Simulated scan of single mutants.
Amino acid sequence: MLLARPRIQPNECLVSYLIRISEQNGFKHIGHLLHHAGLAWKNNRVPVHEILTGEFDLNVYFLQLGLTSCSSQIEPIFYSFQHVIDTPYLLVKYPKVCPDCIEEFGFCRFEWSLLPYLACARHGKLLIDVHYSTGKRLNWYRRYLNKFDDDTDVINSLSNVAPSEAIKLSQYIEALLQGGNRISCPEILQGLELRESLSIIHFIAHYRSRLLGGSFQPLSITNGELAQYYQYVWEMLENWPDAYYKFLNQYLERPMSNKELVAYINILGIYMSLCIVRRGTGELLG
């Protein structure tokens, strides 16, 4: 049993909730908390990714911790997140946060765990995932919600002002998570569900990187670097189909290797996939 049993907040990331429980009960980090609840994993490890995707059921551990009143509140968030995210490649490896939101509301929102969710629209800043002076990554195993894992460096609320495209993309994702009512987005995305939209955005970013001779490795780069990839994709979607045709023409204007030919076929497949999805709604692509 615990001395402090806070309630989970609407839209709170489950790992954020674990960190808050650990902090309020004096545990070093969430691994020690779950070990106390009976999770006997080596070195007090925690299946963070499986918790984010909804694959790992925490209810039995919450019961062990005397948090029975929270389990019924967790399930709607838990399963709604699981049912729309069906690929591990759209979830972060390291957390990213808005320090101003944490200070104001006291928890981390679960949409911050989505790779294309880049900025806090409320405060107009990019989400923070590295220390502003040392470059040290934020960690799921930190002791306090608003500090880095060395327990000394408070997350600095100074952050780069987010590009308008990053804010629009984050607003779009948030609107889809909330049901998609009165959503503002490029015409080409209208009628798409969250899973479809995130996959399209992610794949375009990937193949644009291939076109430029690089590789898109979103799990290993910072949120600021991710913003550079995804904001270009949002610009392309806002100027569909002209920007997409221009993108394809860059392949046709020079000889292609076998790998580039495969990439070309795949990005052409993205366009065809959108055609199929939109045709299903009775609409025509531009």
Results as ranks from 00 to 15, higher is better:
residue 1 M to D: 14
residue 3 L to A: 11
residue 4 A to H: 12
residue 6 P to R: 06
residue 11 N to K: 13
residue 12 E to M: 03
residue 15 V to I: 15
residue 19 I to V: 15
residue 19 I to Q: 14
residue 21 I to R: 07
residue 22 S to L: 01
residue 28 K to E: 15
residue 32 H to L: 04
residue 33 L to Q: 10
residue 35 H to G: 03
residue 44 N to E: 10
residue 54 G to C: 09
residue 62 F to Q: 06
residue 64 Q to W: 00
residue 65 L to T: 04
residue 66 G to V: 01
residue 67 L to C: 11
residue 69 S to L: 10
residue 72 S to Q: 10
residue 72 S to Y: 05
residue 76 P to G: 08
residue 77 I to E: 14
residue 79 Y to V: 05
residue 82 Q to I: 00
residue 89 Y to F: 14
residue 90 L to P: 05
residue 91 L to N: 08
residue 96 K to E: 01
residue 96 K to T: 02
residue 96 K to V: 02
residue 97 V to R: 02
residue 99 P to S: 04
residue 100 D to Q: 11
residue 105 F to H: 13
residue 110 F to N: 12
residue 114 L to N: 03
residue 114 L to Y: 14
residue 115 L to D: 09
residue 122 R to V: 02
residue 125 K to I: 02
residue 131 H to M: 08
residue 144 Y to T: 01
residue 145 L to T: 11
residue 147 K to H: 12
residue 161 V to R: 09
residue 163 P to T: 05
residue 166 A to I: 05
residue 167 I to H: 03
residue 168 K to H: 10
residue 169 L to N: 07
residue 171 Q to P: 01
residue 176 L to T: 05
residue 177 L to N: 12
residue 181 N to L: 14
residue 183 I to Y: 04
residue 189 L to P: 05
residue 195 R to L: 05
residue 195 R to D: 08
residue 201 I to T: 08
residue 202 H to W: 11
residue 202 H to V: 00
residue 203 F to D: 10
residue 207 Y to H: 12
residue 208 R to W: 13
residue 208 R to T: 09
residue 211 L to W: 03
residue 212 L to N: 10
residue 212 L to V: 02
residue 215 S to Y: 12
residue 220 S to M: 04
residue 220 S to Q: 12
residue 221 I to K: 12
residue 223 N to H: 06
residue 228 Q to S: 14
residue 233 V to Y: 08
residue 234 W to T: 03
residue 234 W to Y: 15
residue 239 N to Q: 14
residue 243 A to Y: 11
residue 247 F to P: 09
residue 252 L to K: 08
residue 253 E to C: 07
residue 253 E to K: 11
residue 255 P to A: 01
residue 260 E to V: 00
residue 260 E to F: 06
residue 266 N to R: 08
residue 266 N to D: 06
residue 267 I to P: 05
residue 268 L to K: 13
residue 271 Y to M: 06
residue 272 M to T: 06
residue 274 L to H: 03
residue 274 L to A: 06
residue 277 V to S: 13
residue 281 T to K: 13
residue 285 L to N: 06
residue 285 L to Q: 07
